[in-house]
Amino acid sequence: MNLLPFVVAGLVIGSVYALSGVGVLVLYRTTGVLNFAHGAVGGMAALLVWQMVELRMQPPVAIALGVAAGAAIALLFGLVAGPFLARVDQLRKAIATLGLALALLGLMLFVWNDKARTIRLESSRISFDVAGARVNVTQLVCLGLALLVVVGTLLALRYTSTGTSMRALASDRELAAVVGTNVRLVENTAWAISGAVAGVSGILLADQTRLEPAFLTFLIIPELAAVVIGRFVSLWLTLVGGLAVGVGQSLVSAWPTVSAFSTAVPFVVATIVILVAARRRVVTVRVVRT
């Protein structure tokens, strides 16, 4: 069996997981909120794009508005819930976003029902062969965008005022406020950026897979697996994690006997990483003690 098409498909989906994971990670490090609604925000953005295109809007305009809608939904939640979330522990923060995910899922099902749709981007119509595998321009955009967002985020965190303030919040929120960082403004910026990233990811996934509310909402699981592989710290490892999960899922789905277990791949990969990391830490501690 020629596995290359599966590897290519896996890399593409994995790059979108990674892209989404970067959004989750930046928000988590800045606000302390692990956003389980990230996938649902992406799903909502993708459905809005589909709706606007159905209403004969130009696709580029619809995509721009869809991404803006993702940013606006996340920002609105950050504005309303942020002050309360700042005062509660991380578990409650995460559960609050689970509530948002379910509310958005309910709204999507109410407005658009659970029918699977597709968004077919113009760039997906242009394709070519690479070593026997068919590759389209959208797939290249997915891969390039993931890399660009990782590099761009690293540069922004290092060289911009907002990025520097985000690092300060990630390091010590109280101290950041004491030295003058406008915590609410930086947090709201993180919500908006994360929402925009969710929007882009949702639209790309709707093109590459299918536009279905529950499917896109629960894509937060492989996205979170990428963040876990990045140890909630590293953008590069989050990228690697996303690609590994995507390729793993795609390869498992290539074999009919085990394809039903492809959804378990994120758990398996994340668990292996956690166990290996924990084992390495134990070994390190033993070596130090010896």
């Binding site: 005022s161 520097t164 010590d172 101290l175 004491v178 003058g180």
Partner: peptide, 26 residues
Amino acid sequence: IATMQEGHRVFSDISVADNLAIAALL
């Protein structure tokens, strides 16, 4: 009003220069 909190509190995982850069953002 600048406050220096108890326990030599710094952004421990951020470089010395960037600790100062964060404060200088004002």
